[in-house]
């Protein structure tokens, strides 16, 4: 029981510090965008509950977009509750946007207490089957 309580208290402290420690909010923003430095570090955060966290916007386009890190205009997309990359990864979004087998560009933006992160994805039809997901904002991290 002590181990479980310790884990709960550790996560609770993490959550309570998130509004005042920018590094924690940044880590969570990167977690939401699948841009954590490594998959292992990302996966270790899965017990941290994040129901309806942050202001997450997304926009799916059929026309090519490029990474524009200097762009400060808020994204004019719809809101989504959490983990906005789900628009391509989760079943309903995959069906909605990728079932025709054509290129699609997804831009997601998450904001929290003055910090924000914008990420661009390109779902490119693979040579044989399905799609390859490319990030236009840098490396997706290594394992």
């Amino acid at each position: 029981m002590l181990m479980i309580v310790t884990l709960i208290v550790t996560i609770a402290i993490w959550l309570l510090l998130m509004p005042i420690v920018p590094a924690i909010a940044s880590a969570t923003l990167h977690r939401f965008h699948l841009r954590t430095s490594s998959f292992t570090v990302w996966a270790m955060q899965f017990p941290i509950p994040a129901m309806y966290n942050f202001a997450n916007r997304y926009k799916v386009q059929a026309d090519q977009v490029s990474s524009t890190p200097s762009d400060t205009v808020p994204l004019d997309g719809r809101m989504v509750n959490h983990f906005p990359a789900r628009i391509f990864t989760f079943a309903d979004g995959r069906y909605l946007h990728l079932r025709h087998g054509e290129d699609r560009w997804l831009t997601i933006e998450s904001s929290y207490r003055g910090q924000s992160l914008r990420t661009h994805f390109h779902a490119e039809p693979a040579e044989e089957y399905g799609f390859e997901l490319h990030r236009l904002d840098g490396n997706p991290g290594t394992r």
Binding site: A12, L15, M18, I48, P49, A50, F54, A55, R113
Partner: peptide, 23 residues
């Protein structure tokens, strides 16, 4: 007690991510 801690944590996780102007 353990179940209450877990439920509290889940709710705290929902709350802390909403402590922002957009919510």
């Amino acid at each position: 007690f353990l179940s209450r801690l877990i439920i509290s944590l889940i709710l705290l996780g929902g709350a802390s991510g909403k402590w922002t102007a957009e919510y």
